[in-house]
Simulated scan of single mutants.
Amino acid sequence: MTENDAMENAASETETVSEAPAADGAATRIAALEKEVADAKQAVLYAAAEAQNVRRRAEKEAADARAYAVTAFARDLLSVADNLERGLAAIPAELREDEKLKGLIQGLEATGRELANVFQRNGIARISALGEVLDPNKHQAMVEIPSDQPAGTIVQEMQAGYMIKDRLLRPSMVGVAKKAE
């Protein structure tokens, strides 16, 4: 091999060596940029998902606020309904037949029916209790009463309970059967 050939081989090896680092540097730079793009896409996806979750949560909270906005007012009206019911129950049978009081009693009964209709229109429903099995999600046991009914059956309702849509507004206060001794 001549001296020229040796020099040419050395020059071509130098070019190859100097091109290799440049090619490796470009490949490394491209890989880094591709990783940054992938990370940015992932961050955008997470942000979009989070925005959608926030929007759904806000829509649900707004719907709940509309549906249950009357809860405090409804609780206050329950005491009115209770007092009206107790007042009507306290009227003796002989006074119910008295012509002087018949109009008053009919007016009070009509008021009670109208109040029940208002409750119904607003999604407020009375919880059935008598004869039912005690449900701690709807009933509050106040006393145990010896009875021939199966234990845990509601045999007395002391105060009516109410639901507003699918939520408990007030539990029924009840007496529950226990085995007679």
Rank of each mutant, 00 (worst) to 15 (best):
Asn122Trp: 08
Ala58Cys: 06
Ala62Ile: 03
Thr16Gly: 07
Gly123Glu: 06
Gly123Asn: 13
Leu95Arg: 03
Lys35Pro: 02
Asp148Ser: 06
Val37Ile: 09
Thr14Lys: 15
Leu77Glu: 10
Gly161Glu: 08
Glu109Asp: 13
Asn4Pro: 00
Gln140Val: 09
Met163Lys: 13
Asp135His: 13
Leu33Arg: 10
Ala160Trp: 11
Ile124Ala: 01
Arg86Gly: 00
Ala177Glu: 12
Ala93Cys: 05
Ala129Tyr: 05
Gln52Ala: 13
Glu3Ile: 15
Lys102Asp: 01
Ala40His: 15
Ala141Lys: 08
Pro171Ile: 00
Gly161Ile: 04
Ala49Asp: 05
Asp5Gln: 10
Asn137Gly: 12
Gly131Trp: 06
Ala51Trp: 14
Arg126Cys: 10
Gly103Arg: 06
Ala90Glu: 02
Ile105Lys: 07
Val54Asn: 12
Asp5Arg: 04
His139Gln: 04
Gln156Met: 10
Glu181Met: 08
Asn122Lys: 02
Ile105Met: 07
Gln149Ala: 07
Thr71Glu: 06
Thr111Trp: 15
Glu59His: 04
Ala38Lys: 11
Leu168Arg: 11
Gln149Asn: 14
Ala40Arg: 15
Ala129Leu: 08
Ala26Cys: 03
Tyr68Glu: 00
Gly123Thr: 09
Gln120Asp: 10
Ala125Asp: 09
Ala129Trp: 01
Ala72Phe: 05
Phe119Asn: 02
Ser79Asn: 09
Gln159Thr: 09
Glu34Phe: 05
Lys165Leu: 06
Gly152Ala: 10
Ala125Leu: 07
Glu109Phe: 05
Ala62Thr: 06
Thr111Phe: 15
Asn53Ala: 03
Leu169Asn: 09
Val17Lys: 04
Gln156Leu: 09
Ala93Lys: 08
